[in-house]
Design a binder for these strands. Sequence first.
DNA 1: CCTGATCTTTGACTAAAGTCAAAGAAGTAT
DNA 2: ATACTTCTTTGACTTTAGTCAAAGATCAGG
Lengths: 295, 295
Amino acid sequence: MEPVSAEHVTTLRRFNRYFTRRIGALDDHYLGQDRPLGEARLLFEIGDGVSLRELRGRLGLDAGYLSRMARALEAQGLVRITVHPKDTRQRLAELTPAGHVEVKEQNRRANHLAEGLLKGLTPPQRGQLTEALGSAQRLLRLAAISVEVVDGAAPDARACLDAYAADIDERFPEGFDPASLVRPHEVSGDTGAFLVAYEEGRPVGCGALRRLEAGVGEIRHVWVHPDARRLGLARRLLDALERQATQRGYEIVRLDTHASLTEAQAMYRACGYAEIPRYDANVYAAYWFEKRLGR
Amino acid sequence: MEPVSAEHVTTLRRFNRYFTRRIGALDDHYLGQDRPLGEARLLFEIGDGVSLRELRGRLGLDAGYLSRMARALEAQGLVRITVHPKDTRQRLAELTPAGHVEVKEQNRRANHLAEGLLKGLTPPQRGQLTEALGSAQRLLRLAAISVEVVDGAAPDARACLDAYAADIDERFPEGFDPASLVRPHEVSGDTGAFLVAYEEGRPVGCGALRRLEAGVGEIRHVWVHPDARRLGLARRLLDALERQATQRGYEIVRLDTHASLTEAQAMYRACGYAEIPRYDANVYAAYWFEKRLGR
DNA sequence: CCTGATCTTTGACTAAAGTCAAAGAAGTAT
DNA sequence: ATACTTCTTTGACTTTAGTCAAAGATCAGG
């Protein structure tokens, strides 16, 4: 892995300092107004109803602390706390009408703040800022996603494949039969691999590698959760799969794609894949690609 | 003023949320380690010695609170507090060797964190991130700078002009005589104006408008503090000066520039100024420009 | 030299934020 | 049914962060 240049580190740190001190601090100050910041944040996060468990994870709070804060908000009539229908140990928090009003007010204030800031710029500069922030956020998210090898039968792996199947079932005019998914044993061990991408602990993408014939691997089921698209994650999954293939001694990887997945086709071409004749009987495939792995 | 588009507000707010939650929070958590965050920050800000007064302003802390924290750091042997040589009411704080060690450790940790984040990206992506963050920070700073009309004799105005004079005295091969600066009365009232740009309360730029002849104003002394260059502030000052000129009934504004200020010349051209023949006897001028104000 | 402002220190508080451990209730796996 | 785990609640704390006012020391300007 290449060393990280000092310039990049400096810029990131300088930005961090500037941003958290100047913008973040302001925001916090305004968000709460006449309410402790912790409660204001909690209220905001509750939104359309979440379990306390989820909140605990998301905000990284102590269980006791959270419980008390949530109950305090309940006492103020801002949230309603109910028992989770599927697991009676858990509690669900949701906003009452009064809570919604309060959150709306929070949003109004935060918008006002953002507008005040943007007012200091000309319209083209606003556009530049939006673009820069959007691009920075995309890259920061991508940097925070880790791609890991998991067992093909692991719950996260199955969850991804299920989501993948549902996704393309909707996208393919002819639908998709989950029976054509890879079997767990094909993507484990010496000849295959299953990768899952995690963002803050949540699986947001996957990809599978299996053996096709001697020296030839096949990449299948490269999928990215809708929330994590347009970050460049598919490319990263593809890279990681190729590395797995190399490790397993494959010199060539192949893959096929459905006619409707035009962005995917473009990505494969951009990543060095060349179109080849049909190599399998996959009824969903319309194009077949191959890449010779450099070392 | 144009309304701020919702898209821009949303992007800014989304970024703010993501960044403060994910990066800022992490950083804070690591920075302190076994020390309260307030003290850690204070230590960091002390750096190579500052007065408590300065720190109070910079960090926005209560005087009593700051005093106690500083004394606590002194008791821990991390800072030395001495009496200000020029004003015995004030105190100066500087790091002891132990304090330097601690700050270095802070920096090491923060760098490590930034590196960890950047490691998740390919080198070209790191470059993109650096560029996006740099550009975002530039624009955010620019947005936070306010340009105000002040009296030509105000301390901030004089301070800017002094800095301007010192700056160009160094830059012009022939030096610069401060006697050629505008007089306060020329840049006040109905026929002139003096603008100062403030960043977080600190003057970081200026510009003057005075009467040349009927219907013609002259822009002079457009200057930006070295810390605030490359943000687009000169352009903003120029815009604001033109608005002042229009308000005062001038249809034309003129200005001159020194031969050595090539970036300034380029900016004037880009802002709609056209070169004209010499219109004054300014010994420092090599180029003369004019712009007809629209509206 | 006097007056009013500035800077720091101290005392006396308060509120927010967070920690830790114990216990009860409810799931899950065997 | 049993053992183990998870989720929430409660009690009992501690630390941080911050506010406010009063007082003492020192400056700056007239």
